[in-house]
Design a binder for these strands. Structure first.
Lengths: 209, 209
DNA sequence: GTTAGCATGTAAGGAGTTACATGATTTT
DNA sequence: AAAATCATGTAACTCCTTACATGCTAAC
């Protein structure tokens, strides 16, 4: 009943439910629309996750409090179960959004964390973007070194695969460079002297364009 | 002991051992060099896989047949276990290389299959490339539709994520277009008799932008 | 009156990953 | 003698995925 797995789903669900309460089916559609090309979840992933989050008390079934008493919504279609964030859930969401370590910049987590940058503090955003850039640059170094070592015995298809792979990663690095520059430009974030962030309110309006 | 999981690893291991026998540690390095940016495996993945393939009789420990009898190689470092492909393993490898369905063009499998295109029949190569292109175009359609539906409630970060994601996929489609054109040019592949397409090869250049 | 879409779930398993444990050999 | 690298392995776990099972409601 307790014991939460679901690192990506947890943030996505809490983040979406923070905007507005929803039932599972709709949540899944918004989820996949949110994550776009990065990821797609089926019901078989979402519902067990909702069950867990419910068990942990991070979300709760919304009781519509009609005059006829607290019955599940039978007005629309089938009796839907509308979930909302609890106080614990909000706290948990804030913790997840404050994450700026590997969980937020590795392949798995980066997409979701980025998708919720609008709700993320400016200094955290910057740390995640920079963390991911470092990660990708490490990967570039590793692959380039490996290629140099084994260059002679790779056939043309393998070389082409590598070329395309490297180009993709380089392209993402350039994208991150632009985002980082844009984050810095939009003021409010002094390059962290030690860890100190200035209090600013305009955290979410800065998109690169 | 039997029962093979490991869809990606199996092909990669058999394909590499087809070139030359190797021990696990070296295999892992060549594996990661081969797959480049696409994937990286640790020993915890490779060794159990080798155990399975051994159990299935697809690979075998190479006996060096020294004059002192069949002992494990103690010449180099620690007693290495050098694996080689068996006859069954070669057959299995041919089956895997002949695969041209979803397993070969989905995200997971495509990289490995492509890496071994040098050992793959020309018509199979073409089918895999076209299959992947279709898959990506479906994905583009799906995401663009989803974006159109929920455009208004996405913030600028989410939009930026989608823009970058779409661009990445579009870029891969263009790459596939070039590869497919190049495969057709290099002769030897008559367009499959049943699936008839108009006599221009440039069917897929329709990317917006 | 039947398909298509809405809506919720479970059981079993996939394809690895992480952390740990061990020891030999070469380099510094 | 210490550190790095070579070399092999296991147990427990992860984070979903696939296939299945169910039923309601709107549209054709």
């Amino acid at each position: 009943m307790s014991g939460n797995r679901y690192r990506v789903l947890e943030l996505a669900v809490l983040g979406l439910l923070h905007e507005t309460p929803m039932h599972g089916y709709e949540l899944r559609k918004r989820l996949n629309a949110l994550l776009g090309t990065f990821r797609a979840f089926g019901y078989g992933s979402l519902y067990p996750c909702l069950k867990d989050l419910l068990g942990l008390g991070l979300i709760a079934e919304e009781q519509p409090e009609g005059p006829a008493g607290p019955a599940r919504q039978r007005s629309g279609r089938r009796s839907k179960i509308v979930y909302r964030l609890t106080a614990d859930g909000k706290e948990r969401l804030q913790d997840l959004l404050a994450e700026s370590g590997p969980a937020a910049w590795e392949d798995d987590g980066f997409g979701v964390h980025f998708a919720f940058f609008g709700q993320t503090r400016a200094d955290i955003r910057l740390r995640i973007l920079e963390g991911r850039r470092s990660r990708l640059e490490e990967r570039l170094d590793g692959v380039r070194a490996a290629m140099a070592r084994t260059r002679e015995r790779l056939d043309s298809y393998t070389l082409e695969l590598h070329r395309h792979g490297l180009e993709s990663v380089e392209r993402e690095v350039r994208w991150l460079n632009e985002l980082i520059a844009s984050e810095r430009e939009s003021g409010s974030v002094p390059p962290p002297p030690s860890a100190r962030h200035a209090e600013n309110g305009t955290s979410a309006d800065s998109h690169p364009g």
